[in-house]
Measured scan of single mutants.
Amino acid sequence: DVEPGKFYKGVVTRIEKYGASINLNEQVRGLLRPRDMISLRLENLNVGDEIIVQAIDVRPEKREIDFKYIP
Rank of each mutant, 00 (worst) to 15 (best):
E26K: 12
N44R: 06
K6H: 10
G30E: 02
V2P: 05
Y8G: 00
Y69D: 03
S39V: 08
Q54L: 15
V53I: 08
L45A: 01
R63V: 08
P34W: 11
K6G: 07
T13K: 04
I15C: 07
R59E: 04
R33S: 12
P60Y: 10
Q27M: 12
A20W: 06
L31H: 05
L42H: 03
R63E: 11
D66I: 14
A20H: 02
T13L: 04
Q54E: 06
A55D: 00
V53W: 02
G10V: 08
E43W: 09
M37K: 03
K9P: 04
E26N: 13
R29C: 13
I51N: 00
P34D: 07
V2Y: 09
Y69Q: 07
S39D: 15
D1S: 13
V11S: 03
I22S: 01
V12R: 00
K68G: 14
D36G: 04
R14E: 07
E64R: 09
G48R: 01
K9L: 12
I56P: 01
I52Q: 03
K68A: 15
E43D: 12
R33N: 04
V53R: 00
E3R: 13
I65H: 04
I15W: 02
K68N: 05
L45W: 01
A20G: 02
I22C: 03
S21A: 11
R41H: 12
D57P: 04
E64I: 11
E26I: 12
P34S: 10
I56K: 10
N23K: 15
S39H: 15
A20K: 01
L32R: 01
Y8W: 02
I15H: 01
D57Y: 11
D66V: 12
V2H: 04
R33T: 05
V58L: 06
V11F: 08
E50I: 15
P60K: 10
E50V: 15
I15Y: 00
K17R: 13
F67N: 02
G48I: 00
V53D: 00
Y69L: 06
N44D: 15
L24P: 01
Q54H: 04
N23L: 14
N44W: 14
V12H: 00
I56G: 05
D49R: 02
P60G: 10
L24E: 01
P4F: 09
K6N: 07
D36F: 08
R59L: 06
D1Y: 13
R41P: 06
G10K: 00
K62D: 10
R33Y: 05
R63D: 11
R33D: 05
N46Q: 14
K9A: 08
E16S: 15
I70S: 09
K9W: 12
G10A: 10
S39Q: 14
P71S: 11
P71Q: 08
Q54C: 12
Y8V: 01
L45Q: 00
K68I: 09
L32E: 03
L40M: 10
K9I: 11
F7W: 11
Y8C: 14
V58P: 04
G10S: 02
R29P: 04
R29L: 10
Q54G: 02
G19K: 04
P34T: 08
K68T: 07
I65D: 02
E61V: 08
T13D: 05
V53G: 00
V2G: 05
D36A: 05
I51F: 03
S21G: 05
S39I: 09
N46F: 09
E3G: 04
V58H: 05
D36Y: 08
T13P: 00
A20R: 01
K68Q: 10
G5F: 06
V47D: 01
G30Y: 02
R14C: 07
Y69F: 11
G30C: 11
L42E: 03
V28E: 05
K68F: 09
D57T: 12
Y69M: 06
R41S: 14
N44P: 02
R29N: 12
N25Q: 05
I15G: 00
E50D: 07
Y8S: 00
L24Y: 02
D66Y: 15
G30T: 01
P60L: 10
D1G: 12
L42I: 12
K68R: 15
E64N: 06
E3H: 11
D66S: 13
V28R: 04
I65Q: 03
V47R: 02
R63Q: 14
Q27P: 04
E61R: 08
R59I: 06
R33I: 07
K9S: 06
Q27D: 12
F7A: 04
N46Y: 08
S39R: 12
R41N: 12
N44K: 06
M37V: 06
D66N: 10
E16R: 11
I70D: 13
E26C: 12
K6V: 08
V2R: 04
I52R: 06
I65W: 11
N44Q: 15
P71M: 08
G5I: 02
I22V: 09
K9Q: 07
R41G: 12
K6Q: 09
I70W: 13
A55N: 00
G5A: 03
K6D: 03
G10W: 08
D1R: 13
V47L: 09
D49W: 07
D66K: 10
I70C: 10
